[in-house]
Amino acid sequence: MAARLGSVAAHRTEWVFRALVSAHVVAIVGQPVFAGAYLTGDYDSLRWHAVGADVVTSVGYLQLIAAIVVRFRLRRSGPLVATAAVVVAETVQYFAGLDGALWLHVPLGVMTVAALVVQFVVVWRQSLVREAVDA
């Protein structure tokens, strides 16, 4: 079966996905930090917030690719659905920030961080590789 990959490959896929979710959490937590410093008048923090937005969004798209791989290699669609939702939110978030639509930017940002934290807990709490359960 296609899903019955060698366990090494399955675990590698899972670890890549976990690493991306972890990097994503680290990157996104920096965003409110820079935003807060910026609003105290630290102008350079605006640039860091902008760089952070690029990094977060890019990691989000990498995570989306990894989630697609997880979907087909490990036959798990939960990670793909969750990642797709986060990536859509981040894309909206990016443009809301550029447009200065703070009514959307601030709450959506908080929700995106919360969603990623939940995803972080989920991917590390239990393995995505089914064989242990199914066997």
Partner: peptide, 27 residues
């Protein structure tokens, strides 16, 4: 799982709609 997902989705939707309703647009 669907229940938790639905509840969180409802909270998020309610939060963003409230922000949209309360916010001054244009600011």
């Amino acid at each position: 799982v669907l229940g938790i997902g639905g509840a969180l989705g409802l909270v998020a939707t309610t939060g963003l709609s409230t922000a949209a309703a309360l916010a001054r647009r244009p600011s």
